[in-house]
Design a protein around this nucleic acid. Structure first.
Length: 323
DNA sequence: CGTTTTTGACCAGCGC
DNA sequence: GCGCTGGTCAAAAACG
């Protein structure tokens, strides 16, 4: 194994956006957490505190919050193209997930980082990094309509014109036996690829609802096979399939935590169910920036104005799914 | 029989 | 230019 692998620098896919999230975070710095009217707020998970809506709810887009809120919660501003662009472009190719997942050290598992410390993250670096692969792919899709000839193979002649705007994406990790976690939506698998440096393949799913372009990628961590990494891309433009509702609502963790990626495994093990937000601290840590910290549910609730979350803008979540 | 999964092929981008 | 890689397509197979 090469050095970079050992360092876990290769886990880019699900988190290559995370860096962007980070950038998005920077963009969000002046925004407050989505002020949810009355009983709901942010994207906490249901089942724990009724005042919070479930993660699933957020995903569904049924509530006023919708994905936008979730995105916002994650530092993605649906209304901000800037954030979007920074969010979804894969400017970052490498991510030291390895540290988070397996190896990593187990430090600061219960420390609380102050908002200030995370603020330093805001320094964007790739935020304006033009449209990388994403747009290119779009081209691939749309382009080619011209050559209906033999090129029909892969080219799907998509109505060009519309410069498909970058989709917001976010990833989260789930401790689960099953790869494809039920999230309430119906997905159709459209591809599977072997993941570099990992014995586990990555599966590609698309929302089966017509006109819904949401996609998601699911792969298992090669560092910790018990962890499934799910990356959502896009925003559902429809409600949850009725048949699946209810059964999934309670599947998501009830507590929210911000955690140092390196302590993820350990942190998860101490709770029946938990949701952890992983801070995109990759290179940050190298710069001496305080590493993300773990927040208990209570701590989270106590965060004034959610300033912490706001500043930290998690790029991904860690879910522990107990079947 | 309609829908979903499987799977090999294809394409574009990137690094060398 | 070449090889590698991620993402997608689509025909065939599997499934309910």
């Amino acid at each position: 194994m090469s050095d970079h692998e050992l360092k876990g620098l290769y886990y880019h896919d699900p988190f290559q956006d995370d860096h962007d999230h980070l950038n998005g975070a920077a963009c969000m710095q002046n925004q407050k957490f989505p002020p949810i009217s009355g009983s709901s707020s942010a994207f906490n998970l249901q089942g724990f505190d009724p005042s919070y809506m479930s993660f699933t709810e957020c995903l569904q887009g049924e509530t006023p919050m919708d994905y936008n809120s979730l995105a916002t919660a994650f530092g993605l501003s649906p209304s901000s193209s800037e954030v979007f662009s920074s969010v979804d472009q894969g400017s970052q190719k490498q991510f030291d997930l390895g540290d988070h997942l397996g190896g990593g050290s187990n430090h600061d598992q219960n420390q609380v980082t102050t908002p200030n410390s995370s603020v330093s993250y805001s320094s964007t670096e790739a935020g304006a990094e033009e449209d990388s692969e994403k747009s290119k792919k779009d081209e691939q899709q749309k382009g080619l309509e011209d050559g209906g000839e033999d090129s029909k193979k892969v080219s799907k002649a998509k109505k060009k014109g519309e410069k498909k705007q970058k989709e917001p994406r976010f990833a989260f990790m789930t401790k689960s036996e099953v790869d494809h976690l039920e999230d309430g939506y119906r997905w159709r698998k459209y591809g599977q690829k072997a993941v570099k440096n990992s014995p586990y393949p990555r599966s590609y799913y698309r929302c089966t609802t017509q006109k819904c372009t949401v996609k998601k990628r699911v792969e298992r961590s090669f560092q910790d096979p018990s962890i499934v990494i799910t990356t959502y891309e896009g925003q559902h433009n429809h409600p949850l399939p009725a048949t699946l509702r209810g059964t999934t609502a309670g599947m998501f963790p009830s507590s929210v935590m911000l955690t140092p990626t390196s302590s993820m495994a350990g942190g998860c093990s101490s709770f029946p169910q938990e949701l952890l937000f992983q801070m995109p601290h990759h290179h940050m840590t190298n710069q001496g920036v305080t590493a993300p910290s773990v927040y208990s549910h209570q701590q989270y609730n106590q965060l004034p104005d959610y300033g912490l979350l706001q500043d930290m803008v998690p790029s991904s979540m860690f879910l522990k799914h107990e079947p």
